[in-house]
Design a protein around this nucleic acid. Structure first.
Lengths: 336, 336
DNA sequence: TTGAAAGCGCTAACAT
DNA sequence: ATGTTAGCGCTTTCAA
């Protein structure tokens, strides 16, 4: 099935077939109808390879994530996939298994074969990333190179706002002694979240924030932090993410500590795992599906309208609070 | 960067450049070295669109899944992605959001633009699927059309074996009254798992299996089934999948029923969520990453060696038991 | 072992 | 409004 078949069937030239498909308005209504009818009848689909070769565009974009099994990234992927499909673009997903080398290699391999790349939570150092940004059409998620003078389209989550929301929620419940169980020190989100909680606590009357330290960003990290978090004497604990919170919850439940009876607990990210436990986790997080969509939108804007990597191509997503069952007023609330 | 640049730099014709890359053995060692050096120096990468157009192959395969956020499918995706990358193929991921229509439409759109498709847990009816199989290079995961006379490459999980393993594990612990909380009636896995548990129970001395009914395959389904499962009087419960098990666990914990103290609990699939709870879930499941890899392997075999859709292109993966903390001997074990 | 040349299917100038 | 035509970059006969 080629343009020739369609042309023959509808009695026009192949150029008209191509036009009827790509620029319908540049063709008379009559011919257009005939061509489109032939297209339908024959089940014709333009050959993407030929089109790509000629146009210099592939109609494919890539999404690079550290770990697709992580619900954070699979949600992002879902959003990106949905919108790119809607816009007629193919989405190639690359899982780097958290390895910066794999990421760099894949980006290099993909660069010339696709129209653009979305890099989610890149594990690459700033300088390598800046270099890539200058030679590739791409959008960053969870990364901001503006301090480096590199102005790239980005989707970021306002982690500080999220941290404030988390602390504020606990404050309003009556908590004054709050612990924060941190994630990996080098993590971008961890920096923002730790800073945000500290800052929010400092601005609130009589709130003490205890930093429990850095832990692995998974259930085991949470389990490892459980004792220290409890010993901090806090009436409420904020975990680096939902998985860490679940780890805390699991370990505490094994040692007889009740949530929210003895201590309130909050997660970050509000992924679906927050709904899995008992009590269900109160969590604050951005709509990751939306983040994925925004990234695609930004990228396609840049691709379709040939927009340069100007400033203004930023989207900041504000995390929202999902109150569930793991937070409640502190036990001594009515006494205090 | 084109073949011409490389040709010029290494003093050969473009044909030789192409050969040095695609059929190294058909080029003298000397020239080959020179060409490859030029390739490296220039950072040349063959243009995929041009190559595709000429060869009639795209070097891209697609993976179609109902829901990428479901850990079952994200694990599958991870495996498929890893192997296809290793083999030099791009992987386009499509999330159908559980909609058969979207699935059908996407398959039609992709068909001519890629080398093959992997359909995971297709939501399409048998006849539609059979039709697709006959006109497309593809591999099925979790589906078997052989009863329909359609012989397609498939990766299936031996659900019956898994069910036997689950029942056997509980039997050995001393359980004799076992309940099964089923998933959606129309689900392929549900049929096999329900049947397998029933069968295994029938073969074991004095085991009663109670079918609690069909529920949604998620946490809410588990919560909804909690009372009925408990009222069945079983000393152990097998859930349709890990999420359902987690729902049972959560609801029970809220109503004062202890696991495994009062009742043992097993999940299916052994996804990462089984590690999230307290107690951690004993679960039986196949290595989904491996299933994804197998599917890619099967598909590439078919693509690369032009193998017809012969029988023999089947892989059956046997689920393995992961014993964690949610199963233990029944409370009256030493009394009985 | 290497080179010359045809063309994969499409799009976009250019011509009518 | 429509047709003619020249390639996009590569692979692959065919010839040398």
């Amino acid at each position: 099935m080629t343009v020739h078949d369609v042309a023959a069937r509808s009695g026009v030239s192949i150029a008209t077939v191509s036009r009827a498909l790509r620029e319908p308005h540049r063709v008379s209504e009559d011919t257009r109808d005939r061509v489109l009818a032939a297209v339908r009848d024959l089940g014709y689909r333009p050959n993407r390879a030929a089109s790509s070769l000629r146009r210099g565009r592939t109609g494919v974009i890539a999404l690079v994530v550290p770990d697709i099994v992580n619900p954070y990234f699979s949600s992002l992927t879902k959003g990106a996939q949905g919108l790119s499909r809607e816009r007629g673009y193919g989405l190639v997903v690359v899982d780097t298994t958290e390895l910066a080398e794999v990421e760099a290699e894949e980006i290099a391999a993909l660069r010339s074969q696709i129209d653009g790349i979305i890099l989610a939570s890149s594990r690459l150092p700033d300088d390598r990333l800046a270099e890539i940004m200058s030679t590739t059409t791409c959008v960053l998620i969870n990364r901001d190179l503006s301090e480096l003078g590199v102005t790239a389209p980005t989707v970021t989550i306002d982690e500080r706002s999220g941290a404030r929301t988390a602390v504020g929620h606990l404050y309003e419940l009556g908590h004054r002694r709050i612990a924060y169980v941190g994630g990996p020190e080098r993590s971008w989100s961890q920096g923002r979240r730790a800073h945000g909680t500290r800052e929010a606590a400092a601005e609130l009357d009589g709130v003490t924030l205890i930093d429990v330290g850095s832990f692995a960003p998974d259930v085991d990290g949470g389990r490892a932090a459980a004792a220290a978090a409890r010993d901090s004497g806090a009436t409420a604990v904020i975990a680096y993410n939902d998985l860490v919170a679940l780890g805390l919850l699991a370990r505490w439940s094994e040692t007889g500590i009740r949530v929210p009876g003895d201590v309130s607990l909050m997660g970050f990210d509000n992924t679906f795992v927050a709904e899995l436990s008992s009590p269900r986790l109160t969590s604050v997080g951005a709509d990751l599906t939306e983040c994925g969509e925004l990234a695609v939108e930004l990228l396609l804007e840049r691709i379709d309208h040939h927009e340069p990597a100007e400033a203004g191509l930023h989207r900041v997503v504000t995390p929202r609070l999902a109150v569930r069952d793991s937070t409640a007023p502190p036990a001594d609330a009515d006494r205090g």
